[in-house]
């Protein structure tokens, strides 16, 4: 396994009788990277996560997580991976501290480490004063944060988050996404499963699009847009001068130039051509502004599944 690849799946397959839940998927996740896994319900996302955690046995193929085989060394894998399931559950009769202390003891932390890490983790997820409160009094948002605190207490090299914002309000969602970015800045690789495409786009470096147990597409959002929408890189240019449109069209790699207004052009290109476009416009016109318009993951997702449906 390459040095910085912390999750690698090769031909990973899971069958339940005649049903193929996951079909020969290949996936790499590097240290400090946030990778989103998307797809409709039943497309194999959660089964893949369970196989990576060693909680279910693959029928075929292999995986390596943090340098260990989840099938052969599940304990070593689980020592290094923090997992937050969708709508996380806690023991309602116990306090937040007792809940997290239980899983921390299972993870092998000493009492001293638990005390230290617990306060730090609760602080980080914005729940500094609820350690002694029973979880039964917590809102859904607080439970999700507590779940993330559990992941943080483990100080994992990989965090697997399954639909972590599904039950959160918009404000809590934004805060939660900030915490996920915090994991990345700690050097933790994050595998994020979600149906909220805008959220995935805002935090993920790469995405893998699941369809019927296979990874249909994978790469950065821009790469996916290029493949699905064609000319996925969109640059808006504001320039004054009569020849700006011709100058833009002449740049190698530009697919199409749209005139949006008297001094506003939308340039569709094969790759990120911001530097080349700036130079070209400067030759004959006044460049007033240039903006890299990121393609929308929502658009990519919708178009891809429309095409799949049409093909069927």
């Amino acid at each position: 396994m390459a040095e910085d690849v912390v999750i690698r799946a090769q031909g990973l397959t899971k069958r339940y009788g005649p049903t193929v839940a996951v079909d020969h998927i290949d996936l790499d996740v590097r240290a400090g990277e946030i990778v989103g896994i998307l797809g409709p319900n039943g497309s194999g996302k959660t089964t893949t996560i369970l196989m990576l955690l060693g909680l279910t046995e693959p029928t075929e193929g292999r995986a390596e997580v943090a340098g260990f085989d989840p099938l052969r060394d599940p304990l070593e894998v689980k020592r290094r991976v923090g997992y937050l399931p969708d709508s996380v559950g806690f023991y309602d009769g116990l306090s937040a501290r007792d809940n997290l202390a239980y899983t921390a003891r299972l993870a092998g932390l000493s009492r001293r480490e638990i005390d230290h890490r617990f306060a730090e983790a609760l602080d980080r997820v914005g729940l500094p004063d609820v350690g002694r409160d029973r979880v039964s009094t917590f809102s859904r948002g607080m439970r999700q944060r507590l779940g993330l605190a559990e992941v943080l207490m483990k100080r994992p090299s990989i965090a697997i988050l399954d639909e972590p914002t599904a039950t959160l309000d918009p404000h809590s969602t934004q805060e939660f996404l900030g915490m996920i970015r915090g994991l990345k800045s700690d050097g933790t690789a994050v595998l994020l499963s979600s149906h909220h495409l805008d959220q995935v786009q805002s935090v993920c470096d790469r995405v893998a699009l699941f369809n019927r147990g296979r990874i249909a597409l994978s790469g950065s959002v821009t790469e996916l847009a290029h493949r699905v929408l064609g000319g996925g890189y969109v640059i808006d240019v504001e320039a004054r001068g009569g020849t700006a449109r011709n100058q833009l069209a002449a740049v190698p790699g530009v697919v199409r130039v749209q005139v949006l207004g008297p001094e506003l052009y939308r340039v569709h290109c094969e790759r990120d051509l911001r530097a080349a476009i700036s130079r070209a416009v400067a030759l004959s016109s006044d460049l007033l502004g240039i903006r890299f318009a990121e393609p929308s993951l929502n658009e990519v997702y919708t178009r891809y599944f429309d095409e799949v449906r049409d093909a069927a």
Binding site: L55, P74, L75, K78, P85, S87, G89, Y91, T103, A107
Partner: peptide
């Protein structure tokens, strides 16, 4: 039913 099983089994235990 409490949805605690996967959380507990995600810790290093069989």
């Amino acid at each position: 039913s409490r949805r605690t099983l996967s959380r507990v089994l995600a810790q290093p235990i069989y």
